[in-house]
Design a protein around this nucleic acid. Sequence first.
DNA 1: GACTTAGTCAAGCAGATGCTTTATCAAGCT
DNA 2: AGCTTGATAAAGCATCTGCTTGACTAAGTC
Lengths: 115, 115
Amino acid sequence: MEVTVDDERLDAMFAALADRTRRDIVARLSEGEATVGELAAPYAMSLQAVSQHIGVLERCGLVSRSRHRQTRPCRLEPQALEAAVSWIEESRRAWADRVDRLEAHLARLQEGYQR
Amino acid sequence: MEVTVDDERLDAMFAALADRTRRDIVARLSEGEATVGELAAPYAMSLQAVSQHIGVLERCGLVSRSRHRQTRPCRLEPQALEAAVSWIEESRRAWADRVDRLEAHLARLQEGYQR
DNA sequence: GACTTAGTCAAGCAGATGCTTTATCAAGCT
DNA sequence: AGCTTGATAAAGCATCTGCTTGACTAAGTC
């Protein structure tokens, strides 16, 4: 049974992860919630830029923002990462299967020659 | 021990996978080698465009092109996919650990109240 | 040698992306 | 009410991307 994830979602997800700053933010959030300001602090770029990066992560479902007083705490939505992993795993598995079949085939040929 | 993959490589890899046509090509190649022309056939776009897509996949190490007569057979280099998977898995694992710790903590609190 | 096949190279263009700056808003502080 | 803090909104700009077309090359066919 295949887990079919729609293409647009994968587009957005991989595109989101294609930026170092955003991968950094995801890694940071995997250690726990953080506000936009906290996430922005380590970077040379403006708070607005980081807020935009978080927007990208939010739009593809990897991160969600809530409110607490004036701050906007962000947290990871890891089931979204699942979609990306499963696509990659599926392709890799298909390739591995193919290599296995090929090797098995070659092994049978080899056996044939030796007999 | 961490498998540290350099950021530029991950940038290129996720960017490569952020395109539906390129993911299609990877999926197709996971079923076996194919020439540029064979890969291009299903698409409305020009052969040149597909060749450029393959170039992107090649530059990030996911695909390699060889030569056979006038054709350029392409094949998947699946150990490259490993880098992407391991980055994602690592972040997800960190998040899962954190959730587990949190739940364990809450469980202990709960126990405390009931005693 | 001329023609076809399979593909690359290169220039150009419309639209997306990553940042900036300025302006604005909502919550808390005095 | 006015000021500060934490953040979003919007406009602008340089660069990158995905595609196109036209020109070229290498290998095989007539």
